[in-house]
Design a binder for these strands. Structure first.
Lengths: 108, 108
DNA sequence: GTTATCCTCAACCATATGGTTGAGGATGCG
DNA sequence: CGCATCCTCAACCATATGGTTGAGGATAAC
């Protein structure tokens, strides 16, 4: 889970995922629009792979990357689970504002 | 967005958020169960705060932390948006398997 | 006023991260 | 074969991260 969120915590890598949501792409294709070396881009790909967000397979000398939604689903599940709590808190706060504005203001 | 996912990419901080989903807590209360110094825990709190995930307010010498769901909602929105694409890809892949197993195997 | 408590801040350290370059393996092409 | 291409690997560098300790500010308690 650390690895998944860490992988998502970088705009280059999120952009890669966005592009991979459309087509599968080779490492070179992923690197092409980026203003960094191929080696640097390949490192980002490795981070995504080790987080389980993508899979790589060799096709000749090209390495094709495609999305693996399982890890993303687990991150999503984490957020959704706690979202329930947050919504509960927000509802409670809203109720508090309606009934006791001063106390609610103190709370937040 | 980088900051939000970075903040989530650490188990100590996710645990803090889980606890804050239940009650608001002081920095000391957040630090108490952790096997690290108060200063280290306070640094984690700062990371959460700078990501916009929590808000801190002074109450005497205690600093009370409570969840701010807005940033979490944005992370959730990102995941949900791309989830649509992933699901579409998965559906397409499934269809491909039904109609052209060999070609589908090549694709993944 | 004095002392204890809660927390921040600054300095420091080890390791991780994100980039570079250069070398080289494996494959495709003429 | 000989060479170009795609990519990995290793070494290196600057900076960030996650922890420590020690000092100290602000507030609470006596």
């Amino acid at each position: 889970m650390d690895a998944v969120f860490h992988a998502l915590a970088n705009d280059t890598r999120r952009t890669m995922l966005e592009r991979l949501a459309e087509h599968q792409l080779t490492v070179g294709e992923l690197a092409e629009p980026l203003e960094m070396s191929l080696a640097a881009a390949a490192k980002h790909v490795t981070v995504l792979e080790r987080a389980g967000l993508i899979r790589k397979s060799a096709r000749g000398r090209q390495h094709v990357c495609r999305l693996d939604p399982a890890a993303l689903a687990s991150a999503d599940a984490w957020l959704r689970f706690y979202e329930r709590h947050w919504n509960r808190r927000l509802d409670a706060l809203e109720t508090l504002y309606r009934t006791e504005p001063e106390s609610a203001a103190k709370d937040g």
